[in-house]
Write a protein that binds this DNA or RNA. Structure first.
Lengths: 255, 255
DNA sequence: CTTGACCTTTACGCAACGTAAAGGTGTAAG
DNA sequence: CTTACACCTTTACGTTGCGTAAAGGTCAAG
């Protein structure tokens, strides 16, 4: 299939000017020029344009895109896989923004508290990592946490001490779990310690404890993406690892 | 709390230049100017900036944003609700793009066919609404859901039938629960039906079932915000209501 | 053979800042 | 006390990714 500027533009949902501009930059040259000077694009150009638009969507500058796709090491398939990852990350950021707007609505209606910092959650691009690295926990402690904790405690109707213990346990579980994950053995000492910490953790919020409930929740950690993501975003496979550790801990699984 | 340019910029994840530019445009004026000529922002400005960034995120021009937020009919809460809708629409578009990149990967590997038109699905902006109106659920079913479901199924290692049942149950639980919520009685017939559906639901992903596990999970529904939000975003208090219904269903609570 | 929808190049315009330049301010440490 | 340094100010020009004319050539249909 061959396309003129207007036709390719219509197909891709961009303007003809954009295509001429891309030609001018040397980013996307037409396959050939017709006898009357018209730009004619072919199959290869269609695919390249798709790549360009993926990069553009992700906020890459046109000059940089040119460098990337004209590089001899450029591989279509691995580029696509990278696009996928980046798009998923973008979606996560969007999810944070949506959570933000929902929280802000609740705040406007007086249903909850909200710190100034929380009001801008999800806007920052890669600032997320930067902030974490630069200031570590400090900023969060200073502005956000006390208020946030307050509202969480309300829901969990815990005392401040109970809540602190709960939070501390959560941190310990994650740390122990990540360390245990490196051993690869869910029946090992570290993994079993994580499972024990996890038992204490759920005992905090449930009044009681039972092996069955614990094992059941472990299953849920893998089955339900709300939980799975929470652990897997730290380390892929961590949710599954925790499940196995708990199943062994509760005696629901051998070895 | 009062902020200088740099501090507010850091809070919101933008540059100081941007704040000065917004001042220049008359989009966001500081609350006052210090004796030495410094811009000082207050609480009101923080909230306005949040609004501005929501609009900016949605691609609205600064001049237009100025018109909107300085309009006498401007209502914060309804604006936020609109933001939420737009952001959800944006997420839908992103989902289409993600489905596109996944399809393109499959195409590059020769696992499927793909038309030129399909290669640009998800790039176009307002095409979203058009697509929704024109094809309704069809496109999503065809491209989006199937791929998404596939990856979920992998993690849950369910067959397609099991997965469909699981999804169907989830929908029924929500519907029944919302209806039951209106009666206000967690021991009533509808609420108990929801609890029973919920039992079936967890039986799908856990191999087994126990009352203790079920009751434990119910506690977690209120204690853990990951779960709580899932139900409370439908209707505030729904998570708590479900917990009570399940506790009664499992005989862990009287009345 | 004319009309209208396409195509061409050239060129200026614009939004939303980034990036210096040149200078004043605030405060903590030597 | 002053010196350093991180902040603040205004002014002003630069950049990216196009939009939008202007002035003209091309092509298929009626």
């Amino acid at each position: 299939m061959e396309y003129t500027v207007k036709k390719l533009a219509a197909l891709a949902g961009i303007s003809a000017r954009t295509l001429r501009y891309y030609d001018e930059l040397g980013l996307l040259k037409p396959a050939r020029i017709s006898s009357s000077g018209y730009r004619i694009y072919g199959q290869k150009e269609v695919d390249t344009l798709q790549q360009i638009l993926f990069y553009r969507e992700l906020g890459v500058e046109l000059e940089r895109i040119k460098e990337i796709i004209t590089s001899p090491e450029f591989d279509m398939t691995s580029a696509l896989i990278e696009h996928r990852e980046k798009l998923l990350a973008k979606r996560k950021q969007l999810d944070i923004l949506i959570a933000n707007v929902e929280r802000t609505i609740a705040f406007a209606e007086g249903r909850t508290q909200m710190s100034d910092k929380e009001k801008f959650e999800g806007f920052k691009q890669n600032m997320i990592d930067e902030n974490e690295k630069k200031y570590g926990e400090e900023i969060r402690k200073k502005y956000g946490d006390e208020k946030v904790d307050q509202s969480y405690r309300q829901f969990k109707n815990m005392t401040k001490e109970e809540f602190n213990k709960w939070q501390e346990l959560e941190k310990q579980i994650k740390e122990t779990l990540k360390e245990a994950f490196l051993t690869g053995d869910p029946s090992g000492e570290l993994a079993q310690k994580a499972a024990d910490l996890h038992k204490q953790w759920i005992s905090c919020s449930w009044g009681s404890y039972s092996k069955e409930a614990h094992a059941g929740l472990a299953q849920m950690y893998v089955a339900d993406e709300r939980f799975r993501e929470y652990y897997d975003k730290e380390q892929l496979g961590l949710a599954e690892f925790l499940r196995d550790a708990i199943l062994i801990y509760t005696g629901m699984k051998e070895k």
